[in-house]
Design a binder for these strands. Sequence first.
RNA 1: GGAGCGUUCGACUAAGGGUUAGGUCACCUCCCUUUCACGGAGGUAAUACGGGUUCGAAUCCCGUACGCUCUACCA
Length: 511
Amino acid sequence: MDSKVRVRFAPSPTGGLHLGGVRTVLFNYLFAKHHGGEFILRIEDTDQSRFVPGAEKYIIDTLNWCGLTPDESTVHGGAYGPYRQSERKATYTQYAQILMEKGFAYYAFDTPEDLEEKRKQVPNFQYSRAHRMEMKNSISLSENEVTELLKKGTPHVIRIKVPDEEDIVFTDMIRGEVRFDVSTVDDKVLLKADGMPTYHLAVVVDDFLMKITHAFRGEEWLPSAPVHILLWKYLFGLDKMPKWAHLPLILKPEGSGKLSKRDGERLGFPVFAMDWNDPITKETTIGFKEKGFLPEAFINFLAQLGWNDGTDKEIFSLDELIASFDIERVHKGGAKFDYEKAKWFNQEWIKRTDNKVLATLLQPFLDAAKIEVHEAPYLVKVIGLVKDRCHLLADFIPQSHFFFAAPATIDTAAILPKWEEKKQVFFEALVKSYAEKMKEGLKTLPAAILEASFKELATAHEIKPGDLLLPLRIMLVGGKFGPGVFEIIESIELSDTNARIEHSLRLISEK
RNA sequence: GGAGCGUUCGACUAAGGGUUAGGUCACCUCCCUUUCACGGAGGUAAUACGGGUUCGAAUCCCGUACGCUCUACCA
């Protein structure tokens, strides 16, 4: 008997992948890899009305960005394909037939309009034992009537026949024993009128055929678990059933309820992993990647939403997560998403990431800001100077643009109140001294030397260096921010420094 | 309405019968820095409520409240 761990993530290709989806993938992936098992991506595209072109590719791109690459999928291949449910239609029909033959399912001829009408008439209507006989199906109708309807090609579905009285008990790896009284579950549709299976049939059949050993999914599936367990019992036997775990939900930061795309738009943070361009509405929804998150950080904070290793450790690489992940330590309760904490994780990962690697990742942001970098080593040096103050890769632009071009505006209002004649004289002297250095053929000097000579000159002019540092900073970067003044001068070199000082002096004299 | 699941600082969480209920984010104060950050040191702040069981309960049991999910020919 093959006991190798096999898990799957089974999204439907209807749009961007949000936080909850990625976390489900992550926990599946971590569990599989922790146990040396395999991770399968299966596309659940059985609802043709909701199919969105490009969504499948988007899901695969997202998984790649996160570093959660499937072992088997529509693009990676594998021995249990096809991995797209729309291509497995015949298989589901076959199993639906088996259920019919065994008497565990029946035909239902009610139209959607019939059902809608019935729901209006009967409060809390359930298509189950209570109302089954009032409907049009192969249990309520005579055998002749059924054959007649079938012969005429009347549209129909196949429904599961839920037993009258039975307790369904199963063990959830996170929640322990969960019990349902089956009389409260209705006769779910298994095969739709278009011949496609619903999720309920497809998930059971595919998990069996793909030899899935552990099935993890969001908590929203818990109420329909009894249907799936019934199907396992009828079709394959409970001993073959995967072990279940229902993951807690990711909640809105404020109030309560499941996190949605709308919350992100309202509160100003991403919900999708990567940018999603909806081909139908033409809307673009921003993703964590494009917002400036590192995949390591994205994965890290997602893992910490509902799981921890029992210690105070919070920063985990993917390999460390694999090594310490334990599904039984996953929480039962939902966790509110906190964007501030997410950004903190990202900042920690930016600090840990090599400057050359960051330089590559920063390129799209530099392009978007129209910043031209002439020398790669220069960029790497600048990254080293400002990375500590960036929560997002995008923060790099406002933190460092002055290294690449003179600031567009100078906050002279912050200089003027304390400006005086002797400062004017000092800065003119400073410009002169730098000009002399340049005449000697020097383009720049080390920060420490720049600082020493600056202080010396200040003393000679009988001004405290501290009174001059802030104005100088503002002249160079435009405002009250940025790394050490002399490190900036060292980087932008003497000629640029002089140009910026002279420009600011002119602005000041105009006021 | 019904069914299921859940509930520790504002947020994420630790502590599976004995702790001044610990850590992180956020917030506040101070230090470092004559900028903004980073870093360092402190501070504010929690066991939903009510009953049991026990020498002892955040932890075990029972109620109550509140919240969430599901209740489609969507997943």
